[in-house]
Simulated assay, not measured.
Amino acid sequence: MAAIQIRDVPEPVRARLAQLARERGQSLQSYLLDLVSDEVRRQDNLAVLCRFGEGRHGTRLTREDVVSPLHEARAARDESIRDESPE
C-alpha cells in the first residue's frame, strides 16, 4: 500500500478530524482512509451517472414510454378500489 502525507494542515482542522475519529472509535489514520475511500466511491458513482446521463448507456425508452403505463396502471388500481368500496 502507498502512503499519503498532507502538509500544512491547520491545527484546528487536525484537532477536529481527530475528534471526529475518536467519536467513531477510530484512529485518525483509519478515519482519514475512510474519508478518502468514500470520496473515491462517490466520484466513481458520479462517473457512472454521467455516462448514463449522456445517453451512451441505458434505455432507449422515452419519458412517455415509462409514464403512460404507470398512469394507466394507477387509473386501473383506483377504479378497482372504487368498485370494491361499499357505498
Rank of each mutant, 00 (worst) to 15 (best):
Q5E: 12
I6T: 09
E11C: 02
P12I: 09
R14S: 08
R14G: 09
L17A: 05
A18V: 00
L20F: 05
R24L: 00
S27M: 02
L32R: 10
D34Q: 15
L35E: 12
V36I: 15
S37P: 00
D38R: 15
E39N: 14
V40G: 10
R41K: 14
R41Y: 07
R42N: 11
Q43T: 12
Q43D: 09
D44V: 14
N45F: 12
N45R: 14
L46T: 13
L49Y: 00
C50V: 13
F52W: 10
F52M: 14
G53S: 13
R56L: 10
R56A: 01
R56F: 01
H57N: 09
H57I: 09
G58W: 07
T59L: 09
T59Y: 01
R60S: 13
L61H: 05
T62S: 15
D65E: 07
D65G: 08
D65S: 06
D65K: 03
V66G: 03
V66T: 08
V66L: 15
V67C: 00
P69R: 05
L70Y: 02
H71P: 03
H71W: 08
A73H: 01
A73I: 01
A76D: 02
R77N: 01
E79S: 10
E79Y: 01
I81H: 00
I81N: 06
R82T: 10
D83C: 04
E84H: 05
P86S: 07
E87Q: 14
